[in-house]
Simulated scan of single mutants.
Amino acid sequence: MEKTKPTFTPTWKWLMENKIAFVGFGFGSGLPAKAPGTWGSLMGMLLAGLLLGIGVGKLWLFLLAVVAFVVGIGICHETELALGRVHDYSGIVWDEIVAMLFVFSLIPQGFFWWIIGFAAFRFFDIVKPQPISWADSKVNGGLGVMLDDVIAAVYAVLVVGILALIF
């Protein structure tokens, strides 16, 4: 399914009137016209860092990511509807946030590994090798929005894991 655009430009005011879209847009991090996926990923990195920083362990972060994935299917679906049935609009970044929670719950801790994990995720999310591309183009609705990013997160975790074994 081809990505589409809404008939209007989402604004902060629109997000404040659409609470589910506020979450779908990553608490506003998906609003920038340039690189909303990167901004959403940075929001996910920030949230993961805050949660781990207050003592939430990696296992709990992973379990939170699982719950956020399941809930995110509905969030992303409702956000698509609020945009006028727009498919996988770039400003919907809840999927990037959840993917970052997965990545940072599964990779070694430390600044170096987080930068590599972030970069690897962004690479796979942008380039979309198979089956990411298939999930992005063939799976509709909220599940489609969420699924391609989780697969990209798995690829990123694998890359970091391999690098961690080497170094």
Score class of each variant (00 low, 15 high):
Ala99His: 07
Val93Asp: 00
Asp88Thr: 06
Phe121Asn: 02
Leu46Gly: 07
Ala33Gly: 07
Ser29His: 07
Leu42Cys: 07
Ala35Thr: 15
Gly26Ala: 15
Cys76Leu: 10
Leu46Gln: 03
Ile132Glu: 00
Phe104Glu: 00
Glu96Asp: 11
Gly74Phe: 14
Gly91His: 00
Gly30Val: 01
Val103Arg: 05
Ile97Ala: 01
Tyr89His: 14
Val66Tyr: 06
Phe112Ala: 13
Val23Leu: 15
Ile73Lys: 11
Asp95His: 09
Gly28Trp: 04
Val23Pro: 00
Val93Lys: 01
Gly28Tyr: 07
Pro108Trp: 14
Gly30Thr: 04
Val67Asn: 10
Gly37Cys: 07
Val127Cys: 03
Gly24His: 09
Phe124Ser: 06
Ala35Tyr: 14
Lys19Glu: 08
Phe69Cys: 08
Ile97Leu: 13
Asn18Ile: 06
Phe121Leu: 09
Phe25Ser: 02
Phe118Gly: 01
Val103Asp: 00
Val67Tyr: 13
Ser41Ala: 15
Ala35Ile: 15
Trp60Ser: 10
Pro32Leu: 14
Gly55Asp: 09
Asp88Pro: 02
Gly57Leu: 13
Lys34His: 09
Gly49Cys: 12
Leu51Asn: 03
Gly91Val: 02
His87Tyr: 10
Pro32Ala: 15
Glu96Ser: 11
Tyr89Leu: 04
Val67Pro: 05
Ala68Met: 13
Gly24Ala: 12
Leu52Asp: 02
Phe27His: 06
Val127Asp: 06
Ala99Asp: 05
Ser90Asn: 13
Phe104Trp: 08
Phe25Thr: 02
Val70Pro: 05
Phe62Gln: 05
Asp125Gln: 09
Val71Pro: 03
Ala119His: 05
Trp113Gly: 06
Ala35Val: 15
Gly37Leu: 04
Leu83His: 00
Trp113Phe: 11
Val98Gln: 04
Tyr89Thr: 01
Asn18Asp: 07
Gln130Lys: 13
Ser41Cys: 11
Val23His: 00
Leu101Phe: 10
Val67Lys: 14
Arg85Lys: 15
Phe27Ile: 14
Val71Arg: 05
Pro129Ile: 11
Phe62Lys: 11
Ile73Glu: 07
Gly44Tyr: 01
Gly110Trp: 11
Gly49Pro: 00
His87Cys: 03
Gln130Met: 11
Arg122Thr: 02
Ser41Asp: 08
Leu81Arg: 15
Phe123Pro: 00
Glu96Asn: 08
Tyr89Met: 05
Ile116Asn: 04
His77Ile: 01
Ser90Gly: 12
Gly84Pro: 04
Gln109Ile: 09
Gly49Gln: 13
Phe123Lys: 06
Thr38Asp: 04
Asp88Leu: 04
Ala99Trp: 06
Gly57Phe: 11
Val56Gly: 01
Trp60Asn: 10
Leu50Gly: 06
Asp125Tyr: 03
Leu31Asn: 12
Ser133Phe: 09
Gly84Trp: 13
Glu78Lys: 14
Gly26Tyr: 01
Phe25Asn: 00
Pro129Asp: 06
Ile92Thr: 02
Ile132Ser: 00
Gly84Thr: 08
Ala35Arg: 15
Phe22Lys: 04
Ile107Gly: 08
Phe112Val: 15
Ser90Asp: 15
Gly49Trp: 14
Pro36Gly: 13
Trp60Val: 06
Phe104Ile: 12
Val66Met: 11
Trp134Phe: 14
Ile97Met: 14
